[in-house]
Design a protein around this nucleic acid. Structure first.
Lengths: 229, 229
DNA sequence: CAAGAATTGTGCGTGTGCGCAAATTTGCGT
DNA sequence: ACGCAAATTTGCGCACACGCACAATTCTTG
């Protein structure tokens, strides 16, 4: 009811997407990421090279997607699941910290690979942009834009901008945090010789998102006041 | 003392960059943007195609750069020039409105061309990312991070994150505003048949940036309080 | 003023992104 | 069960982004 449009189509689609991600990561780990052609990935996944490009627009995207998974959807769900009692800022910040802290499946070697190669780091950072639209919907929901089931792109809401701006700002802040994290960890890797998994990524995320808390809470107060009217 | 590093080198560099921008826009206007190969642009600017790619990584970037110019530097300068009396939020918002309202040189036909073609619209939207770093420096300056002349990437400041996050958020908000503006104007163009230059872009920018004002002012208050200590 | 260092323009080759149109698969109505 | 419409895959082809090695020009230092 939520995401299935026809059932079998979407299922097969996700299957091939999954196969491509897995193949890309596996090959990138076996040989270096520079010794992997897109033809190899396509062949390993059992599809045509052209089909591969229908799913991912770059080789790095596929590799990174194997690690990030469906983080964007999980973030949105996490925001929606927080009880209404906590403030919007806390809800958003903690939801993000949760989703970016839970290592889930990513093997440490995959993360090392990503932090090492610049192209992969960039692709990993670009991933944060994907959380913007789901997060927009989640925030709009919490702000109580009562105007129906528009999926975020319609112009029917009371204030179309606030949710979008806040979501975009949060995504940008997360990107800033990841950039900083990748820079420092990369530096420490170069210096120490052994990988330092993190300088406490949760704390860094909280510190980076903190400046946005006033904006989030102010928007929530505005929404409450307007709704009460 | 500000931007010149060696003098003649930078001068020639800006000259070729300018030549490439101008050639790209001129050719894109004469023929359609789809009938312009990068070889043509390079030839019109008198450089090799390879050199062209040293300056712009896509054909659309070059065309759009002819219109946007050095907007990023002007935004930063505008923020820095506001008197210290006005709040940070007002300073940033009005500076941005000024720079995005002043049409400057862009001919209306060039703007029409950009709003029409999707690829050019995307490139135009991506331009907003460029204001992030200059804006970071300007905001950091206003927040009075007293720790020396670091150009924004050093870690020597008191709070390295706030300025970066705020600048990134502002850039993201501007991007949201431009996306909305381009969508609606494109729709009205399709509907009306004649181009509608804007539905008051300044007001749209102000409305889109408004949700960030609490964050900007809160950061300023924090900085003041910390500095007084 | 001369030699060295650094930066920029250039040619070449490779891998890749993507538009287009035909072929195949899937969903749905009857 | 069958056929029509929509969506997806695939092959083809072209233009392009980018790494690498090298030549030319400019800045620096003795």
């Amino acid at each position: 009811m939520t995401t299935r449009r026809t059932g079998l189509r979407e299922q097969k689609k996700q299957a091939t997407r999954q196969a491509l991600r897995a193949a890309a990561l596996r090959l990138a780990l076996e040989r270096g990421p520079d010794n992997v052609r897109v033809d190899d990935i396509a062949e390993a996944a059992g599809v045509s090279p052209r089909t591969y490009n229908n799913y991912f627009s770059s080789r790095e995207q596929a590799i990174v997607a194997a690690v990030t998974g469906e983080r964007e959807a999980r973030v949105a769900a996490a925001v929606a699941d927080r009880p209404g009692g906590v403030g919007l800022a806390d809800a958003v910040i903690e939801a993000i910290v949760d989703q970016y802290t839970a290592p889930g499946e990513p093997g440490q070697d995959a993360l090392l690979l990503i932090t090492t190669r610049p192209a992969l780091r960039d692709a990993f950072i670009d991933t944060t942009a994907a959380i913007e639209h789901p997060l927009t919907d989640a925030i709009a929901e919490r702000l109580g834009d009562g105007a129906g089931a528009g999926d975020g792109d319609g112009d029917g809401e009371r204030d179309p901008h606030t949710a979008r701006v806040l979501a975009a700002s949060v995504a940008a802040a997360v990107r800033v945090a990841l950039e900083h994290w990748l820079r420092t960890t990369a530096a420490s890797v170069t210096a120490g010789g052994l990988v330092v998994p993190s300088g406490s990524l949760p704390d860094l995320l909280r510190a980076t998102l903190a400046p946005l808390a006033p904006a989030l809470d102010a928007a929530e107060q505005r929404a409450l006041r307007r709704r009460r009217r």
